[in-house]
Amino acid sequence: MALLELKNVTKNYNNECCALDNVSFSVDKGEFVSIIGPSGAGKSTLLRCINRMVEASSGEISVDGVISSSLSKKKLRKLRTKIGMIFQHYNLVDRLTVIENVLHGRLGYKSTLAGVLGRYNQEEKSQAYRIIEILGLNEQIYKRCDQLSGGQKQRVGIARALVQNPKIILCDEPIASLDPNASKIIMDHLRNISKEMGITIIVNLHQVEVALKYSDRIIGVNRGKVVFDGAPCDLTTRQIRDIYGSESEDLIFELGERHAG
């Protein structure tokens, strides 16, 4: 059975049609899926429907066999611990240290009081430390997050998601504010996570060439509809035109050619 399954998911904001329009797909364990599409196509909404940061208007989403739409607050919390999320602007607490930010990923597992007081047990701490070391941040471990570079901040974001022991990690444009070097490091880490740990990765991307290079599967979204769903090698320039609209054809075509050559 698929790890994540969306059936006819629709989302309207303020009764206007349609941020998402009848979206259905399913994702297996360990898959690396990229979602591409123009700005405002509904990529972010799609991701946030999966962990119910945004409530879908209709349709059914099941994560790991649990249908999420009818869950109580407590069970939703439990479900969210299985879904990590990383963001374009990292969304870390700048005044806290790297290790404190990473341990925030454990809050969903803790009682309210233990979370409020910030009491973490030895096992959680050593897990956090291991993950930080894997991501190459052990020199920054007690640094405050506002002293880090963008790439390092994003790695802290990944560590925070990993320490949840998630089954899925949702990435909302993780490399949109990073330079090419840092972007490559982040994307390599994400690919390793999916290949070695068997964690499903779903990434929103603006860079078609990055999506082509890293993903097992690409989902193209335009105006809330899935217009492409398949392997990267099946993505033709015509389909890219379907996804991004005809105006951007030349630009993307050129980009594609340059990377081919």
């Binding site: 806290l96 597992y109 803790k110 979370g115």
Partner: peptide
């Protein structure tokens, strides 16, 4: 404190009190 930081902690399953004491007040 940016709304998005609160969103990030909510997405990881933290509840309101935990977010207040772990993110809002330290900031």
């Amino acid at each position: 404190l940016d709304r998005s930081v609160i969103e990030a902690l909510m997405a990881s399953g933290a509840n309101w009190w935990q977010i207040v004491f772990q993110a809002v007040i330290p900031s």
